[in-house]
Design a protein around this nucleic acid. Structure first.
Lengths: 246, 246
DNA sequence: TTGGTAAGCTGGTATTACCATTTTACTTTT
DNA sequence: AAAAGTAAAATGGTAATACCAGCTTACCAA
């Protein structure tokens, strides 16, 4: 007779595995029994066991390797926001919330980066910044795509996040940026006119300087203005689209 | 012949479903074909299809009802941090990162709450605050458990987060708080001596006042000090444990 | 010692059958 | 005709078995 008793089998199995982890009986890196063996121990078939393993691996708690086995995963903050990278159905009000959160996070991240950054971090940020300004200017001469510009811009911002040496804040910012940019409401509006982008490049340089010189408050406020400026221009575009052309 | 072609079947099915959602062919509330029918359409068996559905439902993108069907879920920020509620294996350095993130988030959340709070929000915060101070004082008279005190404390802080009316910040704070408090390193150290807790209660009252009067900067700085104080006392406890008793 | 080969582990998928719950449609009752 | 009850069908959940695909191991040959 198995250990499982009530309600959905797979859920009970999930609880069973989580309890083993919480009780420290199973630690990071440990291998679970093979599916056949484990299923027999629990008194269930492979199907609900696999459902449980699937759910836990989606959460990042387990990892499965074909031919190898199933293992307890190392704690990995990457999964914090991973779920949302592909989700695009956002309402107007949610987008406002996202931007509000993004302004706060970007500014605080810049501040913390100014405090914690190493010399190596500066190098990465600088490279991304220069690549970005180059691709952005080339884009207005008809060379390259908007996506390239956005990628370089993202590298700049996430490079700053990496300089905080705080994986939680990194992942939170990554989430907020991804969710926002994947929204179908902002598909082709992110890179605006030439002036606005030159302005953005200037913002980037100021932010970089502040981080390099470890001026936390300046990094905070300039970044805050930078993101607020972006939000404003996006709002303008949204107005155009609602009342204009079509 | 099915639609699926290369690599892992279940992953392809996941991509297939996500693409349908991104292309707006399937919207929130829509019902997927039944497992048998859908599997036949894709040219696979039910097993990999169920694996895909399992993964997507743990991400919060699908929801399944036995006897009913499988549906596209409404966008739900709740899943942002849900994964971590049970995960407890944290290293010392990660705990430092968590506290750093928490200080930033709690302070910014308090600030935003002071800006956006409605009168109803104040009511909830006030109730939690009073319940907390009551259970905390009772606890030192030997009545009630530490867990009750922690729950009330959590209600207070999350009530403030709710007052921001920003579900992203709410979920981020919830995540950071959950991850930190579930750590096995802090099992029985959260409620310290009587003086420290009276201090915390005073902090709470100041924070509440600032939010009620919509004084953003005061809410920010008092909350920042509140969390920093907690971190300090926890560090002291950690020292004791490392060099002391055992 | 080195290299490869084969056996046996592992998870991944297919098939079939049956159970549990929900939905639907029909019948019965009022 | 409307309401209530009941049976049938549809759907997800589980079981059992078999086989495929990738990895590990051990053993053998050079």
């Amino acid at each position: 007779m198995g250990i499982v008793k009530k309600s959905s089998s797979s859920e009970q199995i999930i609880d069973y595995i989580l309890k083993k982890i919480e009780d420290q009986e199973w630690k990071s890196g440990d291998r679970l029994p093979s599916e056949r063996e484990f299923a027999q121990q629990l008194g269930v078939s492979r199907i609900p066991l696999r459902e449980a393993i699937c759910a836990l691996s989606t959460m990042g708690i387990l990892s499965v390797k074909q031919g190898g086995g199933t293992f307890i995963e190392e704690y990995n903050p990457e999964y914090l926001g991973k779920n949302f990278k592909t989700y695009t159905l956002l309402s107007k009000s949610l987008i406002d919330e996202i931007f509000e959160a993004r302004i706060i996070l970007e500014a605080e991240v810049a501040k913390l980066a100014a405090r914690n950054r190493k010399d190596d971090d500066l190098k990465g940020i600088r490279q991304a910044m220069r690549r970005h300004s180059k691709t952005a200017l080339m884009f207005f001469d008809g060379i390259g795509t908007k996506q390239e510009v956005l990628l370089d811009d993202n590298d700049f911002h996430m490079g700053i996040a990496a300089a905080t040496h705080n994986s939680f804040l990194y992942q939170m910012l990554d989430t907020v940026r991804s969710v926002g940019q994947n929204s179908h409401l902002y598909d082709d509006k992110y890179v605006m006119n030439r002036e606005e982008y030159k302005e953005a490049i200037q913002f980037h340089e100021k932010i970089y300087q502040a981080i390099a010189e470890q001026k936390e408050d300046i990094a905070f406020s300039v970044m805050e203005n930078h993101i607020k400026t972006i939000r404003s221009s996006l709002d303008v575009e949204r107005m155009k689209k609602e009342f204009g052309e079509e």
